[in-house]
């Protein structure tokens, strides 16, 4: 029955200053009471594992100090990402204006050079991410059976992760983003940040921004996103994401219990 009682000792140290007094209280605390006579399960550490357990209790006691670095790391990651996105966007704007100027003057300029000099993210680099996501999806959905029931499949999709998904905007209230295709870089609360490929051939005129590709922000509200999953080599399933119902961070979405609402805001 002999242990250090680290938690209780810590608590008592708030009220008593002398060590001896605390030890005395700890030893005599149940004496004479009914609790001492009653049998109870004592969680005494075994001799071999005593050391790590002690460490553990220490960390829980000093939790406040232990939390700081993790929080700082989280903040750093977030800040870095924000900085990266901001910088890339401003670079992109600069590259687009430069391309426009060159086109106005009638000069030939290599788009590849522009992309590398302005550090614009290239679509080809993110195809690997898309492959990873496809693997994750097929494991999530088709691991147990090839033809799963829809009632099983759809709830999993609504709490799945979409970083790396190849999305297409099918319909949107924002006419400018309809038809954009890209790989999701980050699934923010109100936006999908996607990497779009460079457009080379089209029936109509291609704008300078489309020629360069790079990052695009797609608002979730009032937008329908389409994506398709391969079941096997020659069969696909198409899905549509209701952007208005996806206005949650990916972390919150996993635990969210969805409800039906009125549909006017969806389309």
């Amino acid at each position: 029955m002999h242990t250090d009682y680290p938690v209780e000792k810590h608590l008592l140290s708030r009220s008593y200053t002398s060590e001896a007094q605390i030890l005395q209280i700890l030893e005599t605390r149940y004496a004479g009471s009914e609790a001492a006579a009653q049998p109870f399960l004592a969680l005494v550490p075994t001799s071999s594992e005593s050391a790590p357990i002690k460490e553990k209790t220490e960390t829980t006691l000093n939790r406040n100090e232990a939390r700081k670095p993790a929080g700082a790391r989280k903040l750093n990651v977030r800040r870095d990402m924000r900085v990266y996105i901001k910088r890339t966007l401003s670079n992109q704007r600069a590259a687009v204006s430069k391309l426009r100027q060159c086109q106005k003057k009638g000069e030939q300029i290599s788009i590849e050079n522009l992309l590398s000099s302005f550090k614009i993210p290239k679509y080809d680099e993110y195809i690997q991410l898309n492959e990873l996501w496809k693997k994750y999806m097929s494991e999530l959905l088709f691991l147990e059976q090839k033809n799963p029931d829809l009632t099983l499949l759809l709830p999993r999709l609504s709490s799945a992760d979409y970083n790396g998904c190849l999305l297409t905007v099918l319909e949107s209230r924002d006419m400018n983003i309809i038809g954009i295709t890209g790989i999701v870089l980050f699934d923010a609360q109100h936006l999908f940040i996607v990497v779009t490929p460079q457009k080379k051939h089209s029936d109509r005129n291609i704008s300078a921004a489309e020629q360069l590709g790079g990052l695009r922000f797609l608002r979730k509200k009032g937008t329908l996103f389409g994506f398709s999953l391969a079941v096997d080599e020659n069969e696909y399933i198409d899905f549509t994401i209701m952007g208005s119902r996806f206005e949650l961070r990916a972390v919150d979405r996993t635990a969210k219990k969805f409800k039906s609402h009125k549909v006017e805001d969806i389309y």
Partner: peptide, 8 residues
Amino acid sequence: KQTVMLGG
């Protein structure tokens, strides 16, 4: 629940 729809 109006999150991810089949098809379309």
